[in-house]
Design a protein around this nucleic acid. Structure first.
Lengths: 228, 228
DNA sequence: AAACAGGATTACGATTTTGTAATCGCGGAG
DNA sequence: CTCCGCGATTACAAAATCGTAATCCTGTTT
């Protein structure tokens, strides 16, 4: 399933690697020059790159730096040069592994798997606020109060997010408006009021809910947990 | 500016504290019983509570537990009892500070200020992705590419967020759809395609942009940084 | 009681959002 | 060159969003 970009100018090695990797179920794209590799990088957007160091039209390590700007895919160098300095230079240039020829194909496979495994970055965790019986998810634009989830329009979600991020503290109309619209304005009051009213309705927030939005005399709101 | 709820049954102490705190610029709300304190807690939503331990109709420490459910406001106990056990019990019940009578008013002020300062929680930092020349802010629903910001509709923002959170890696139509809609469906292709098209237009993403959204043959998308 | 004040809710309509469907554009096959 | 396939874009219409304004409600003052 994963796509591998194989950059290698020796056609024999290329063929052996390609057939092995394809047998292992990988989607292999081959390049025998820096130029072709750069082209394929755009085309196939590989999940991993196997990179020979010495290529007819350039140095694999130099290419690695350029490649890194475009993709996070791990790079494994494949080369006959096993001097410590070369290895170090390989890692310095952005490589993730360094394999010296000759190598065992199953070792190659293991190293590829290791890189792909590690590269499987954890899911981008959704930014959310979680309180007992109330969660707010900015990515999906939803909130869940006392077990029933609903999606909220942007304005209501923003207000709820602000209130929840300061649960138990007061926030003025003006501050809410300012945070949402970037600047304050003459009658921010009404706009915020209406949207809070809508928010309550959407959340089915009533006397039975575990949270309430209270308003104070001087134009401030508070989200409070209600215990009784 | 800050609102302080002062709970104290000795009317002399009450008066002294109240006038001092008001002179210092605080908004003081007074209660001489647990019952009245509970009422004012709803009404004035204080930023800080000064709580006498022995009240005619109950124990301040017990009340503190209830209060904590409704507000994050710091609680400072004011009491004549200075036994270690009492102090410990005070903190156990949720108090933030414990002052024994008699006390200096300026010390009281300093302790109040310290509590309010610490309680000034840092701004809820907006959840955002920041890449060079590209930032995405889920709270405000905006994105900025190469210096020009624009607000994006939810669907486009979600797609951009997903792509950016995995910049350089491929994501299939199906995965994007699944992440946004919760379930996959027969022709997720078109919906995602259209929204990506709209996204590009909104971001004014063209050949000159530092990022591009590339699509591969087998129904996958990648967000890539373009270097020239 | 009537008038009033001010917050909460509802009404309304311009605008935006968004899935679906139609159209365009382009590279490859015949 | 024409036709096809397929992805990108555009068109369209239903639905949702949202600020403004009108109305409702409730406690207070006259």
């Amino acid at each position: 399933m994963a796509h591998i970009l194989l950059v290698e100018d020796d056609s024999d090695i290329m063929r052996i690697n390609q057939s092995f990797l394809e047998k292992e179920g990988y989607n292999v794209h081959c390049a025998d020059s820096v130029q072709q590799a750069a082209f394929l990088l755009e085309e196939c957007t590989p999940d991993l790159v196997l990179l020979d160091v010495m290529l007819p039209d350039g140095d694999g390590m130099d290419f690695c730096g350029i490649l890194r700007q475009k993709t996070q895919a791990p790079v494994i160098f494949l080369t006959a040069r096993d001097e410590n300095d070369d290895v170090i230079k390989g890692f310095r240039s952005g490589g993730d592994d360094y394999i010296t020829k000759p190598y065992d194909l199953n070792v190659l496979k293991a190293r590829i798997e290791a890189q792909l495994r590690r590269n499987a970055r954890p899911e981008a965790q959704h930014p959310r606020i979680e309180l007992p019986d109330l969660t707010i998810d900015l990515f999906s634009g939803t909130a869940e109060l006392d077990g029933n989830a609903c999606s909220l329009p942007q304005r209501e979600l923003q207000i709820l997010y602000l209130l929840a991020s300061r649960i138990g503290s007061r926030i003025s109309y003006h501050e809410i408006y300012e945070k949402i619209y970037g600047c304050d304005v003459e009658d921010s009051k009404n706009t915020i009021r209406v949207n809070i009213s809508r928010l309550k309705k959407h959340l089915a927030m009533d006397d039975m809910s575990t949270y309430e939005i209270a308003s104070t005399a001087d134009g401030e709101y508070v989200l409070r947990r209600v215990i009784f």
